[in-house]
Amino acid sequence: MRYFTEDHEWVDVDGDIGTVGITDYAQGQLGDIVFVDVPEEGKTVTKGDETAVVESVKAASDVYTPVSGRVIEGNAELADNPGLVNEDADGEGWFFKLTLSDPSELEGLMDEAKYEAFVAKL
């Protein structure tokens, strides 16, 4: 099941493991992505924390974690190939995985249909 935030992050939840990325809409707004800074394994984050950074040539954006938890992996591929976010924001271009500490936080997020409606109004 995939959930979305108004800041254009997504989180895929499988058991208590969440995978976080930014949406295809967000990558389109940023343009060519040149650098991604992902969190280190073991970092504890709280919902809404600035957890990763994504940069295009002319802009730097913070990525807020949609849920709280403990980071278990950052996407190492992005260091050498940040363009992966442009090519496949919904899949290969994920940012980090974490163990959810409070699954109830998911309730406040949007589902895909709601997010599409949200983007359509922007």
Binding site: E55, K58, A60
Partner: peptide
């Protein structure tokens, strides 16, 4: 690498 700089990152 201008995203390190003030005209883009401002207070950060």
């Amino acid at each position: 690498l201008s995203t390190r700089e003030q005209h883009i990152r401002r207070e950060k």
